[in-house]
Design a protein around this nucleic acid. Structure first.
Lengths: 210, 210
DNA sequence: AAAATAAAGTGATTTTTTTTACAAAAAGTA
DNA sequence: TACTTTTTGTAAAAAAAATCACTTTATTTT
């Protein structure tokens, strides 16, 4: 695997390739050409080859790519094989939905704990996980060593929660509060999800179609 | 306003500018320089100016940009001033969360109808809107003329629903099913939201920080 | 009022990304 | 086995995006 500063444009395309290859693999498809993959992904065959060659030559001339092998390689690049533990903090509407809707397992992530401040939610079960009170977080993290935290709390509480989790060893934050959460250091990664942004680009696109 | 084929890279940045300018405006800030805005957005001042000049010169040399004016201009570019009606189909965990969490009004969108197939959900109120049965959709659309549909249904039902809504005049689809929904024609825009993709880039980023 | 400072707008340059084009390798076929 | 087709990997070219650098226009200060 080559690597050495791959552009984020490439990295952003990989999850889509990975998803499609997973579908193919499940469907029992053995091989695929860059052309066929490109058509499905809505990009050029050349781009697919260029993207993959950032990491190594996974294909075979005259044959194409072995679906399952390529799937595993991309998975390894993205870190799907790492099996990180994750916690989710904030069982509102959104937290509840994320826990249920996002296929963490498919991405090599194990959601091991769900926490909230609200006492009334304790004991409730989501995806087979009992909701715990935030006061149990420290002890829990010492045991399970989660590396990723999904933050689905109110703006006001989000930053404080990140700090606490950083001290407990969490290094990746997937933040859904409507704010720009900043990583406190280079060792920490924050991904801010702004659902509304993609809605606005949708608005832009339909503007002159009306 | 210039326009004439602005790159998607530019368009994708606008919602972030818009969000921040809204915050500033609410805070009562009157002016901002490209440098100050750039620092907050994590881009260069030159890029901010370049981006804005795709649409026109909204600033003033020696002064900067008027916050509220720039906010409105970007809003107009994105179509926030259009006040589209929208419907949401599928009141599962996710549909429920999207309806509550996403600030449609802030983006010039009015969520006017929420629909589901499940009879048991009828009458339930979300954000002051009574959930209606899918059988009422046709009549409803004829009256309210929604241009945007938020699809939070199962994969299997999503495509069929899009077709039905297309016939009813919907031209923008915000799809949350884990699939690549394709626009049936160039007059229709589909934005597929794959929450998991950003989680995978997060995994990639923390891979060598561990 | 003149000088100094601030900051947008913009053409030119640089960098990055994407596409093209083709040689090399493998697979299929006669 | 030789020939044809397929398809990758990659160097080179083209296109796109981002940055630099400078001009112009305000504003502020002396």
């Amino acid at each position: 695997m080559k690597n050495s500063q791959v552009s984020t444009a490439v990295i952003r395309r990989l999850p889509r390739y990975y998803r499609y290859l997973t579908d193919l693999s499940i469907a029992g498809v053995l091989k695929i050409s860059s052309k066929a993959l490109a058509d499905k992904m809505g990009v050029t065959a050349s781009q697919i080859r260029q993207d993959l060659n950032c990491f190594g030559g996974f294909g075979q001339q005259g044959y194409g790519y072995n679906v399952e092998l390529l799937r595993q390689e991309i998975g390894a690049i993205l870190g799907v094989d790492k099996n990180y533990n994750a916690v989710l903090i904030g069982v509102g509407n959104l937290g509840h939905a994320i826990a249920n809707h996002v296929k963490f397992e498919k991405r090599g992530i194990k959601l091991v704990g769900i926490f909230d401040i609200d006492e009334k939610l304790m004991g409730q079960e989501i995806k087979g996980i009992k909701v715990k009170h935030i006061s149990e977080l420290d002890e829990f993290c010492k045991e399970y060593q989660p590396k990723i935290a999904v933050l689905t709390l109110a703006k006001a509480e989000t930053e404080k929660m990140m700090k606490q989790l950083c001290d407990l060893g969490v290094i990746g934050f997937w933040n859904f509060a409507n704010m720009e959460l900043k990583a406190p250091s280079d060792d920490i990664t924050v991904v801010n999800v702004h659902l509304g942004d993609s809605l606005m680009t949708l608005c832009y696109d339909i503007k002159d179609k009306i």
